[in-house]
Simulated scan of single mutants.
Amino acid sequence: MKLDADYGIFLANTILNFIKENSVQKLDFIASHGHTIFHNPAENYTFQIGNGPYISSITGIKTICNFRVQDVARGGQGAPLVPIGDKLLFSEYDYCLNLGGFSNISFSEKEQRIAYDICPVNIVLNHYVAPLKMEYDDKGALASTGNLDKNLLEELNSLVFYSDAKPKSLGYEFVVDTIFPIIDKCNLTIRDILRTFVEHVAIQISRKMNSNSGKTMLVTGGGAFNTFLMERLQAYTKTQLIIPEIPEETIINYKEALVFALLGFLKDEGKINCLKSVTGARKNHSSGMIFEL
């Protein structure tokens, strides 16, 4: 609870500094996702720190937050929430793929938006380069020099989660309880771990989309900068992978922030921002909590 409050205070002060440095004159509201600490919808909980009342009280600005809790309460996964933005803002693409800590995909099927988490990505890759004093494997350079371990690859690809019915979502708990133990028991070099896990990610993502040529996929998130991962993914599909270039590169980095601002707008307008076809909730709804002075 203290961390929740402290992080809310930190976010509020960061926002105030941003407003000052950029001479922002008018701001309708703050839409804050917070930072996910726990996520286990099967056990009826999800928790994002970054206390909304503190943000609102310190900044003096209406704050919209806690976007996931209501969806879980209505029987949903509370994730992914970005697909409403994919539907409204990026409908020209057949698929929208985000490569962050986890990969998730969004697409339209039979006039419904379908989306779900696919597999862990950066949360695993970054973990294994941390002992090398690296924040991440730049462009996948280290992974590209490793050897593929077929036994590890086969065990990862056979995990039950990948054959579970949708909707579904992933959290850090899955990585700690399932992914890390499988990898660590193999006693591989860091390069070989990275090489094998990149292949695993490419295979899992490719299985979730139509491989016919003529399809397009918008790729965003930090993983879009992993050149080696993109090469391996493209090797498994004929779908054209579209990675925004400068100046559109900001979409890669900030697409999720952009969409959560949209989620906040929709909540403020009392409009649907959470789709049951995506999360598995009992009905479409307008999710989030509003705090204002």
Rank of each mutant, 00 (worst) to 15 (best):
A5F: 11
N17D: 13
F18R: 05
F18Y: 13
V24Q: 05
L27A: 06
A31N: 07
F38P: 02
N40D: 13
Y45N: 05
T46P: 08
G50P: 08
I55M: 05
I55Q: 13
G60Q: 03
I61A: 13
I61F: 08
K62L: 03
G75V: 00
A79K: 00
F90R: 03
E92M: 07
Y95S: 00
L97E: 10
S108L: 09
I114H: 03
A115D: 06
C119M: 07
I123N: 11
A130S: 15
P131Y: 04
M134H: 12
Y136K: 09
D138C: 11
L142C: 04
G146T: 10
L148Q: 14
Y162I: 11
K166I: 09
T178G: 08
I179D: 12
I179S: 04
C186K: 15
R191W: 00
R191T: 10
E199I: 13
E199S: 12
I203S: 03
K208G: 15
K208I: 02
M209L: 15
N210K: 04
S211E: 13
S213H: 08
G222H: 11
A224P: 07
A224K: 14
F225T: 06
L233W: 05
K238A: 13
E248Q: 14
I252K: 11
N253V: 09
Y254V: 06
E256H: 07
E256M: 13
N273E: 02
S286K: 03
S286N: 10
S287E: 07
S287T: 13
F291K: 02
